[in-house]
Amino acid sequence: MTKLRLQRALLACAAAIGATASAQASVVTLDAYDSGYYSNRGATPDLNSIIEDQTRNNWFAFDLSSIAGKVTGAVLTILADGRYASGSTTSATYTLYDVSTDIGALTGGTGGAGAYTDLASGTVYGAASIALPNGGGVMPEVSVDLTGALDDINAALGGLFAMGGTSDLGANQYLWISSNAEISARLDLEVAPVPLPAALLPFGTALAGLGGLGALRRRSRAA
């Protein structure tokens, strides 16, 4: 194989590796492994209820141990699954926050009133406006963009991650009533491919070597 052909082959291989890396970018979907709520008195249910109202804030926990690569986008979707809204309001703003309460305490039901406060304060991860059935009815599926959570999600890769939620509902208004569905929410993560500098380095070294060899041969012929 001539030098020119070898150079072209190496460049083609490098381009193929780059294309493969780009193709590996993907969306990974995780189900919440646990969820629930805390009331302003620190009470929490034994059942998988995520009811939210003026006196209760809810939460969702995820296992990120399977994620490899940098997370560049995230969306939380709270599933409908037969849950209901109640009250006269036709809209609500639902906001998600970071959680500083120990996840073991949060999921174990021992977070207390401090967890209730924690679930509605701190770093804002994202918010969504929810259109509600007039007079109450079946809840819609709710999706929240989590751009504000990306740093914390990446810091939690390999372990567990939780977020808390609250709304601007008034008295006697309720979200996500009456369902003990096993899965309450899912987390869609856009994961960038792992960089491949180690794989591309030999090609760059080989190309540089060929270039140097060509220059040496030209100098030899000139002499």
Rank of each mutant, 00 (worst) to 15 (best):
A23R: 08
A68M: 07
K70S: 14
G82S: 11
A215D: 06
D53R: 05
G122P: 07
L207D: 03
A43L: 07
L150R: 06
A192I: 09
F203D: 03
G126N: 01
I78W: 02
T147M: 09
A25N: 06
T2F: 06
P193R: 00
E182L: 12
Y33I: 01
G214L: 06
A162M: 09
I17T: 11
T72L: 09
Y125I: 08
L200G: 02
V142Y: 04
V71T: 03
A19T: 09
T44I: 05
S26G: 13
D31W: 01
V71A: 05
L76P: 00
L11R: 09
L216W: 03
T123Y: 00
R218W: 06
A171I: 08
T117Y: 11
V138R: 08
D31E: 14
V75L: 09
S179K: 07
R5E: 15
A16W: 05
L213D: 15
A61C: 10
V124F: 01
A223Q: 13
D46E: 11
T20Q: 14
M1A: 14
A131K: 06
V138I: 08
D34H: 01
A208R: 02
L64Y: 04
K3Y: 09
A181M: 08
R83Q: 13
N48P: 11
S167F: 08
T20M: 12
C13G: 11
A199E: 12
D31Y: 00
G104S: 12
A198P: 04
M1P: 13
V142S: 05
G73A: 13
V138W: 06
V144C: 02
A131G: 11
E141M: 10
G135D: 10
V194L: 14
L216Q: 07
G73S: 11
G148M: 04
Q173V: 10
T147S: 13
R219Q: 10
R41T: 14
S184G: 13
T93E: 03
V99A: 06
R186C: 06
L11D: 12
A32V: 06
V194I: 13
A80E: 15
A192Y: 01
Y116G: 02
M1E: 10
F60R: 03
V191C: 10
T101F: 00
I51F: 04
A199L: 15
P202V: 00
S26N: 12
L160V: 13
R221N: 12
R219C: 05
D34Q: 09
S143L: 06
M139G: 01
A43M: 10
D53I: 01
L10D: 01
P193Y: 04
I50R: 04
G148P: 03
A14E: 13
V75W: 02
T110S: 15
T101N: 08
T205G: 09
A198F: 14
V75P: 09
G159S: 15
A85I: 08
A14F: 02
A198E: 15
D46N: 10
A12K: 05
L132D: 00
A23F: 11
L79Q: 14
S65H: 03
T44E: 05
T89W: 01
L175D: 00
A21N: 10
G82K: 10
V194A: 15
L10T: 04
Y94D: 00
A23W: 07
Q54P: 04
A61W: 01
L79F: 07
D188S: 13
K70Q: 14
